[in-house]
């Protein structure tokens, strides 16, 4: 469980990035953190694995304050996939990249080998096993970064903008994959701007604005409230935009999913004809 209590954080430059955050993420929850650029999303999630320590207030991971444990120790529980894979990748080959953390955690060679192959397969980068991560495309590097975290099977997985640079198919796979992780009772926290992605997953959403949590609730409630979204610099999903336009026909306005949308429209059309 992640508990954030009255968290304030100021960068050494004096910039106050977080101004009193209170938030609890239960085990097995799927949370999307959304909001405008510079709202403090990444700063917030960097507290979850102790990369940043609170200026005041506290962050507890499974009841233990992040001030009292090293990042190395926290990492075993909380895996963090960076927004920019180039901030994370450094090894000579994809294989070494993924094995790196496993070696640091002291896993045995045979386990490492197994986990590396498993993670490479999972993220569809097996063919690049011996390739340098820097020879790969942006989207592929992103997947290698993700594979390197999943390899040690942390209980909490934080993904900062996972869909950036991913094509449609990879995004669909990623979505399946995140939902699957979540079904296995992993806690998943995703920082994202990708409204369509969130609309398809329908997780719990918090909207952030200027270092504070603006609202906390289900995706279908939040993503269909244009005024709220505007404050967080988000636009509603396409399906919602269409239904908002058609509000005068008495159709529901809290639709985010294309399948639900189809059903609603068919019912209306068939019911009246």
């Amino acid at each position: 469980m992640l508990e954030v209590k009255d968290l304030f954080y100021a960068y050494p430059t004096g910039l106050e990035a977080l101004k009193g955050i209170n938030l609890t993420v239960d085990d097995g929850e799927f949370l999307a953190v959304m909001g405008q650029n510079g709202a403090g999303k990444t700063t917030l999630v960097k507290h979850f694995n102790g990369l940043l320590k609170p200026t005041s207030g506290e962050v507890l991971v499974d009841g233990v304050s992040t001030r009292d444990v090293s990042v190395a120790k926290l990492a075993r529980t909380v895996g963090f996939v960076f927004q920019n894979p180039d901030h994370q990748l450094f090894s000579e080959s994809v294989e070494e990249e993924i094995a790196f953390a496993l070696k640091n955690f002291g896993f045995e060679e045979t386990v490492i080998e197994k986990q590396v192959t498993w993670a490479l397969n999972l993220l569809d980068v097996l063919e690049y096993r011996k390739t340098s991560p820097f020879m790969l495309s942006g989207g592929e590097r992103k997947r290698v970064a993700l594979a390197s975290i999943l390899a040690w099977d942390p209980n909490v997985i934080i993904l900062d903008e996972p869909t950036i640079g991913q094509d449609h198919q990879q995004k669909e796979k990623l979505q399946q994959f995140i939902l699957q992780l979540n079904a296995q009772k992993k806690t998943v926290v995703v920082v994202t701007h990708d409204v369509e992605f969130v609309a398809e997953c329908n997780p719990r959403v918090i909207l952030m604005r200027q270092g504070k949590v603006l609202v906390d609730g289900k995706a279908e409630k939040i993503l269909t409230d244009p005024e709220l979204l505007l404050q967080a610099s988000i636009v509603p999903p396409q399906i919602t935009q269409i239904f908002l336009e058609l509000a005068d026909f008495g159709l529901p306005t809290d639709v985010i999913d294309v399948h639900v949308a189809t059903k609603v429209l068919l019912n209306r059309l068939r019911g009246q004809s």
Partner: peptide, 20 residues
């Protein structure tokens, strides 16, 4: 090929499949 079709176009396709 896996091009991400806009949702507006997708809705059209779903409706068409169902006879609208």
């Amino acid at each position: 090929i896996g091009v991400g079709i806009p949702k507006a176009t997708k809705l059209y396709q779903h409706l068409k499949k169902n006879g609208v």
